[in-house]
Amino acid sequence: MNNQAEFVKDLVTEHGTNRESLLPILQAVVEKDRFLSENAILKIAEETNIPAADVYGTASFYSFLDIVPRGKYVIRVCKTITCAMKGKNQILLALEDFLKIKLGDTTPDKLFTILETNCLGWCHKAPAMLVNDDVYTELTPNMVVDILSAYKAEADKE
């Protein structure tokens, strides 16, 4: 937890305690931990002097600022109309099948979380998904297996 406190402190030093700095600070914590823990929220509140309720209220508004634990790799499959028309469900099934979890869940090894998201802006190359910040388009169930295998291999190396 000490690490967490140091990390938040450094972030606040870097971005400042203005309210305008709140989103960048929250984003940086999510980038590192993949979610905002209660401790992180309290620490950010303490360091920035913004009420914890406001920090939580802001964080919980944004779909990319998760407030429940997520895997190291958060998969967000686009579910909006064009992706839905072009086989989003098959992609989801392939993900669930490969990871042996359901939509919304995280693998027991805390490596992957499967989520759905709204329009990613790749309708001309549907279906699309994000793995953290990386974009994958024109997906097929086979591609999904290759993509996830690569992430698994990357995690194994670390």
Binding site: T80, T82, N118, C119, G121, W122, C123, H124
Partner: peptide, 11 residues
Amino acid sequence: DEGEPGTFKDR
């Protein structure tokens, strides 16, 4: 903040 479904030209 191009978020309208079906829009991707700003990117």
